[in-house]
Amino acid sequence: MQYDKAITAQVIIYAELLAPVGGIETFIYNLCCALHKEYDITVIYKNGDDKQVERLQGVVMTLQLGNELEASCDLLIMNSLFDKPPVQITAKKTLQLIHSCKLRDFYVIPEGRDEYIAVSQTAKDSYDDEIAAAAGVLHNIGNNKKPRKLLKLLSATRLTEEKGADRIKALAKALNDEHIPFIWLVFTANAFNGTPKGIVVMQPDLEIKPYIAAADYLVQLSDNESYCYSIVEAFSLGTPVITTPISVADEIGVEDGVNGYVVPFDMQGIDVKKIYEQIPTGFTYKSEDKEILKRWRQIIGKPTHKPTYKPAEKLHVEATQDYLDNALGKVVVAGERHYMSIPRANKLLSMGLVKLIEN
């Protein structure tokens, strides 16, 4: 990197490393956000995550350290205990922050700084030297900027071509391209290669209504559907939908802009900002269940005898060793307890994987 002239600033914040995630990185960003309109601040780093650097550059001058850099400041803020002040930076005063507790013997507060401040009393008290004893305490600054709304999407579908796997990726890309924060739970038994940012693949679940009710949209991007249970369930819970123009859409009550949005099959020209900012609410849905049940009773006829089946009693068992339980979809560890049907419990008992717990 070439510099046209020597850098001068009232405050220089130095970090040898700007990691993708970290408390020091959060502190630097929050402090810059809070003070950049009052003070001339420059952040200098040696190695940095591109996203962290880009975020800081949106607030203050942020430069990568190089041999050709010349910088001077009134106050140099050092963050990591392991960083040394670069020879390229001249400061009237150097402040060392103590961001970490003394976790290992090699965690040593460096000498030679003009002032020391620990970010908590806990951090200060974890060191037993004279420097720490004389250090001040100042908690890290927060960021009171109101966060953007998180868009919550949900799908329960096979990830196949006809069910719109590629369209899911296309919509996720459109949302990411517009920097819209979202989380999209996709309940599926299929692998999802190249999962886009924002999508979380979930194991199939027979009871997803709580997730649908909490979502901003139920998303169904199929080539076609004969009925589409998921859309009907969403409407019954007051959740709008994002769907392709499947043939049954009109029949089950989809109204573009009223109880959701209809997006084209080619996924071109989708107004994702409108989807994000104008979520349909307050729409009405009239369930057909009473009429449907009435019709089924007519089809079956009058009951001829009382039902005799009762759900099977469950047994309480405890794992005697670690084993992979396909029904639960996880590794059950020794000592873990579960209730299960008698046939399934008997099978595991015969294999010696569980023992019966007397209630």
Results as ranks from 00 to 15, higher is better:
154 L>V: 15
101 C>K: 14
124 K>A: 06
162 E>D: 13
10 Q>G: 05
295 R>N: 06
121 Q>K: 12
140 N>L: 15
358 E>Y: 08
251 E>P: 00
108 V>S: 06
162 E>H: 11
71 A>Q: 01
351 M>F: 12
175 L>K: 09
154 L>H: 03
104 R>F: 13
88 Q>M: 12
114 D>F: 09
238 G>S: 12
357 I>H: 00
144 N>A: 13
254 V>N: 03
118 A>L: 06
60 V>H: 04
47 N>D: 14
188 T>W: 05
210 P>T: 03
183 I>Y: 03
156 A>Y: 03
289 D>G: 05
123 A>K: 08
150 L>S: 04
304 T>G: 05
11 V>T: 09
108 V>P: 01
142 G>E: 13
358 E>D: 12
316 H>T: 00
249 A>P: 01
188 T>P: 04
233 E>S: 09
241 V>G: 05
211 Y>W: 12
238 G>V: 11
286 K>I: 11
272 V>I: 12
353 L>C: 05
15 A>R: 15
266 D>H: 09
121 Q>W: 02
189 A>F: 07
40 D>L: 04
137 V>A: 05
72 S>W: 00
276 Y>E: 04
56 L>A: 05
95 L>V: 11
325 D>E: 14
98 I>D: 00
28 I>H: 07
330 K>V: 02
165 A>N: 07
135 A>H: 05
177 D>L: 07
203 Q>K: 15
93 K>A: 08
187 F>P: 07
189 A>T: 02
349 L>G: 04
225 E>D: 11
67 N>A: 07
250 D>Q: 15
91 A>L: 08
209 K>D: 13
164 G>A: 08
1 M>D: 09
262 V>G: 02
191 A>T: 14
296 W>A: 02
231 I>Q: 07
68 E>W: 00
351 M>T: 01
96 Q>A: 05
289 D>E: 13
84 K>C: 09
79 N>T: 14
104 R>P: 00
85 P>Q: 08
209 K>F: 10
194 G>L: 08
287 S>T: 15
207 E>P: 00
235 F>V: 10
89 I>R: 00
157 T>M: 05
139 H>K: 12
117 I>W: 07
267 M>S: 09
275 I>P: 01
53 V>H: 02
242 I>K: 06
4 D>R: 12
305 H>N: 12
314 K>F: 02
59 V>H: 01
88 Q>P: 03
359 N>E: 13
327 A>G: 10
342 I>H: 02
5 K>G: 03
267 M>Y: 11
280 P>V: 03
166 D>T: 09
200 V>L: 12
116 Y>R: 08
96 Q>T: 04
320 T>I: 11
19 A>K: 13
315 L>N: 00
